[in-house]
Amino acid sequence: MLKEKHQKEIDDIISRYPVRRSALLPLLYLAQREDGYVTEAAMKEIAQILKLTPPQVYETITFYTMLNLKPVGKFHIQVCKSLMCALVGSDQLIGWFHSKLGIKPGETTPDKLFTLSVVECLGACGTGPMMQINEDYYERLTEQKVDQILSDLKNTGACPLKSGPFMWPEPSGAKK
């Protein structure tokens, strides 16, 4: 249960808002961090904590794309398909994932390692094509880079190619 495990954090979150219901999204995110997705039990528990009805929680959670209702793979790949990235080749990239992993957008590999999603703008239009895997951004992707990222994640669970979001012109003095 969330409450026993994270009592302090939950109290801290609730104390930040003058109205209790405002804590709903932060708490749902906490639940997602715990299990990778928001379980039904968690939804009920959060409803109880915030004195809401479960449908009120469900109504909110189903609206937001970043809250998962289904389990996702260990690495949730979200490739941006908006026009800015499409102009620099995100469509080819999605095709490349399809041929490498054998999954279409919305599917998970049988080993539960990778889930492929195709999403709208993630705000890295200057450095496309890009994707987000779990919390990390990977930008200016090429097919070689994707190969390396996939094999690194598979073998070591981390990849040095993650840019952390970065910007053009390059930060720290290069601008202007």
């Binding site: 219901r21 804590a23 999204l25 932060p26 995110y29 809401l52 109504e59 909110t60 937001y64 794309t65």
Partner: peptide, 27 residues
């Protein structure tokens, strides 16, 4: 305080953003 939004394009519209901050769908 920081409030972390959970995505959705319309949440950038100010009244939708406020709805979202009240723990409702960002409409």
């Amino acid at each position: 305080e920081l409030f972390t939004g959970m995505g959705s394009y319309v949440a950038g519209e100010e009244t939708a953003m406020l709805e979202s901050m009240q723990g409702r769908p960002a409409m």
